[in-house]
């Protein structure tokens, strides 16, 4: 339609504090893209070309407003030596962490994104997506934050225990995870993607406010500082319940906060003047079997989110499930696309 903004233009305005015609609609269509495209997750997670094709296919199908390069939160830990179990119909899970005893931290090496683990899969996918549609659609590369990568290197339980019993060791691990993330982010940027930082383990569902402030947030902030030096606008995604730590989010330096279980109005009241918000439709509501009225949820989210002074992105609180119902996804996207700001040019 003449005069209609494309996603790149819409996001562009949002990121310079301008009001676009409407909020971008960007549910996290990640591994669900594999299901939509018809490949299994082992192919999706190990072949950049397949990942890119699946993303393009899903975007053409749903018309959501961004391409997402994301396989799993262990991508960096795996490239540093942890073993992940790849599964055909589930996302990869940690099999055996590389660090079996605290001293082993010293032996860790920062991975080379061009050749280690599945990091090259990301780079190939980003390059293909950027080349195919980067003028119209932003390409987002989901990068695990140091806190989450550290858990993948040490094992979640051991790492969380170390934050209490051996904090020095935890910090060492976080430091090298940070350096690895910086290097990987740089390559993703050079391939054409804007990093989105994901920190599922830093959720209020898993850790306390104080652990967040001492161990998660400082490293995320340093990663964001590195990216800010390049003037990049960074979205931080934390899944789970973040309602008790909303006031701590702006201190990470993130420009957008993609939230899961927290009330949008509360988030706006607490940090809406400092940060753009993205969220937060319940992903499990997209399952066929769910009784949640997703259309109503989407309408409510838009109604609240649109009042955020720093801007809003209609999204899911976490990844759309692999087996999400296409009809339900279509519906929430359609509702988002009908929303509008009081945009006067």
């Amino acid at each position: 339609m003449p005069g209609e903004m494309n996603p790149r233009e819409r996001w562009g305005l949002l990121l310079i504090d301008e009001i676009p015609d409407r909020p971008p609609v960007y549910p996290l269509v990640t591994s669900h893209a594999a299901a939509a495209y018809g490949c299994d997750l082992i192919q999706y997670c190990t072949d950049g070309e397949v990942l890119a094709e699946a993303q393009l296919y899903a975007q053409r199908l749903y018309q959501h407003e961004g391409l997402s390069v994301f396989t799993d939160v262990g991508i960096i830990a795996e490239a540093m030596g942890s073993k992940y179990h790849l599964r055909e119909y589930e996302v990869p899970i940690l099999d055996s962490p590389i660090i079996q005893n605290p001293e082993a931290v010293e032996d860790l090496r920062i991975p080379d994104p061009v050749q280690d683990g599945r990091l090259p899969v990301y780079l190939e996918a980003i390059d293909k997506l950027y080349t195919a549609a980067g003028d119209i659609l932003p390409v987002f590369a989901f990068i695990p934050c140091p806190f989450t990568t550290s858990a993948g290197l040490r094992g979640t339980e051991e790492f969380l225990i170390s934050t209490a019993l051996a904090p020095e060791n935890a910090h060492k691990l976080l430091e090298i995870s940070l350096q690895a993330a910086v290097k990987f982010c740089d390559e993703c940027i050079l391939a054409g993607a804007l990093p989105v930082l994901v920190d599922p383990l830093a959720s209020g569902s898993v850790i306390s406010r104080s652990t967040f402030s001492q161990f998660a947030s400082p490293y995320t902030r340093r990663l964001i500082e590195h990216l800010h030096r390049y003037d990049l606008d960074i979205m931080l995604h934390i899944c789970g319940d973040t309602s008790g730590m909303l006031d701590l989010i702006p201190a990470t330096g993130a420009d957008l906060f993609s939230m899961d279980k927290a009330d949008i109005s509360s988030a706006i009241a607490i940090c809406g003047d400092k940060i753009r918000l993205a969220g937060n439709l319940p992903p499990h509501g997209l399952l066929e079997v769910s009784r949640i009225d997703m259309a109503q949820k989407a309408e409510e989210a838009v109604e609240k989110g649109i009042t955020n002074p720093k801007g809003f992105v209609l999204s899911t609180g976490c990844e759309a499930p692999i087996k999400a119902s296409p009809e339900k996804l279509h519906k929430i996207i359609e509702i988002g696309r009908k929303s509008h700001y009081d945009f006067k040019w």
Binding site: R8, G12, P138, L190, G192, D231
Partner: peptide, 15 residues
């Protein structure tokens, strides 16, 4: 601020 390298502008679509 505006002293940024070309990669910054490339990420935002200036391919």
């Amino acid at each position: 601020k505006y002293l940024f390298p070309p990669s910054t502008h490339a990420v935002y679509g200036n391919r």
